[in-house]
């Protein structure tokens, strides 16, 4: 990091990451504590917060963000209201999409999250289309598509990458490879998906697309990279490809996400040895929130007291948000017939 992030910005970045974590913990609480409340599968963003938080912190309200089935925390990071996100996840009337979208498709068009596809790679051409619109309109709006490494198994990725490069579309392909061994996060890496390529980042380079890789658990590294790429795409440059590498959270190995080590305990920031064994190595080496809090504590930009206070206020916010969602009514059944056509 050439220029240290100012303490205020660092704290708000850490706070955003904590909010993303606590939001997803509420989702898992919903599933664990309320039978039938979450009727299907959910995908959580735990372990990837640095990428979404730093990536979104450089975006403006009018910039476009496209995400995936793992969208909850992205929407929060772009400025979405936690209560309305949680209400959408459980299909309530006050949800961001009036309960019509659910966990798979949370979107907030007023914040530039126009449509969320849960089809792997589904949002990639839509993001390219948003970038094409920005280019036609000369609006200077940035477009970022977050997607997983699995999308690079889909044909739509290649078609979109080709056109984005041919038409020089100002968009950022932000690929989140979320199952990399800790020691390989800063290297060239190898694919964790079913892929014949030696390294996924070789692929966009073959198309001539400017490609970067970054340790996705390092909030300040992501921030520095995205500040540069977003500024360049505002000037009409692009496309850009980022491979962001994180290591899988142990709660994500089962068929449903599970708080295998309990809720995140903020004391793991300065005392990871006290974490339950099942998450201890991960908290030591791979939890982006703990890594960043530890870094700020070491740097003297943060005290333990301040961190505990910060976490307390975030937990309070998310507790209220969960309550708001649970108190929100179910939508009127016959409302199902609305909105098929504009």
């Amino acid at each position: 990091m050439a220029v240290p992030v100012p303490a205020e910005s660092a704290l708000s970045l850490l706070q955003l990451m904590l909010r993303m974590r606590r939001l997803e913990e509420e989702v898992i609480h919903f599933q664990r504590d309320h039978q039938g409340l979450i009727r299907g599968h959910v995908h959580v963003y735990i372990g990837q917060e640095a990428a979404g938080a730093a990536g979104c912190s450089v975006l403006r309200k009018e910039d476009r963000l496209f995400t995936t089935h793992r969208n909850h925390a992205h929407v929060l990071a772009k400025g979405g209201d936690a209560g309305r996100i949680l209400a959408e996840i459980i299909g309530r009337a006050d949800g961001l999409c009036k309960g019509r979208a659910g966990t798979f498709h949370v979107a907030d068009p007023a914040l530039g999250i126009l449509h969320t596809s849960a089809i792997v790679g589904g949002c990639l051409p839509l993001a390219a289309g948003a970038a094409y619109a920005a280019k036609l309109q000369g609006s200077g709006q940035a477009t970022v598509a977050f997607f997983g490494d699995g999308a690079m198994e889909e044909g739509v990725f290649y078609e979109t990458l080709n056109i984005a490069q041919l038409w020089q579309l100002p968009m950022i392909f932000y690929m989140e490879n979320n199952a990399v061994l800790p020691g390989e996060r800063s290297g060239r890496g190898s694919p964790s998906s079913e892929h014949s390529a030696e390294a996924l980042s070789d692929i966009p380079q073959a198309f001539g697309v400017l490609t970067q890789h970054v340790d996705g658990t390092d909030a300040e590294a992501v921030l520095e990279l995205m500040q540069d790429l977003v500024a360049r795409s505002r000037r009409g440059e692009g496309p850009f490809f980022v491979e962001s590498r994180t290591s899988r959270w142990p709660g994500n190995y089962g068929s449903v996400p599970s708080l295998v080590g309990g809720d995140t305990d903020i004391s793991w920031a300065w005392d990871w040895q006290s974490a339950p064994e099942v998450v201890r190595r991960w908290e030591e080496l791979s939890d982006p929130i703990m890594l960043y809090a530890r870094k700020l504590l070491d740097r003297g930009a943060l005290t333990i007291d301040r961190l505990v206070e910060l976490d307390g206020s975030v937990r309070e916010e998310m507790g209220h948000a969960a309550e708001f969602a649970l108190n929100s009514p179910l939508p009127d059944a016959a409302g199902a017939l609305e909105y098929a056509y504009a």
């Binding site: 476009r64 126009l114 051409p125 839509l126 289309g129 970038a131 094409y132 078609e159 080709n162």
Partner: peptide
């Protein structure tokens, strides 16, 4: 566009969401 119906239809859809 190149012979890539899936992507160029999607690009049209994304652009339509943005006022084109």
């Amino acid at each position: 566009p190149p012979i890539a119906e899936l992507a160029y239809c999607g690009i049209g859809i994304g652009a339509a969401m943005c006022g084109v």
